[in-house]
Amino acid sequence: MSCQCECQDEVARKEALEKVFEQYRGTKGALIPLLQEAQEIYGYLPGEVMQRIAAELKVPFSKVFGVATFYAQFHLKPRGRNIIRVCQGTACHVRGAARVFESVSEKLGVGRNETTADLRYTLETVACLGACGLAPVMMVNDDTHGRLTPERAAEVLEQYE
C-alpha cells in the first residue's frame, strides 16, 4: 500500500516540477528559482532532480551541483520531519553527551547529519545549546530535553512522529 502511495506522490511531484519548468521556460537566470521550487516540492534536492533541471536549462550538471552546494538554503539530502540536535558543549560532554548521542544514533541507525530512511528523524549535533544546567541536553525541533540518560534520550524520541 505504502509503495503505491509513494509512487503516486512521486508522479505528483514530477508533475509539479514539470509545471514549474513551464512557468520558468524562457526566463533568464532561472537556475536558482528552479532549485528553490524543486526543493519546495521534494523537501530537498535529489540528484535526479538536479540532473533534470540541468537538462531543462541546458546547463552542465556540474554547474547545477556547484550552485546547489554554494547556497546555504539548499539541502542535498532529505531532512527528517524532526530535527534532533544533541549538544556537544563542555558540560554535556562531561556528563555523557557522547553516550547519549551513541544511544540515539544506535536506535535510529543513522550517524551525524544523517536522516532515517522513513524521513522521521535527522540527527545533528550542536556546539552548545546554552542549557548547561540541564546537561546532557538535546533538542528535538523546538523542545529542549535535559538531564538525559542514554535510555531516556531514546525514549523521548517516541513522541515525535
Binding site: 552542465p60 556540474s62 554547474k63 551541483f65 556547484g66 552546494t69 554554494f70
Partner: peptide, 10 residues
C-alpha cells in the same frame, strides 16, 4: 558539452 567539473561548496 564538457564542463565535467566546477567549483562546489563554499
Amino acid at each position: 558539452g564538457r564542463s565535467v567539473i566546477d567549483f562546489g561548496y563554499r
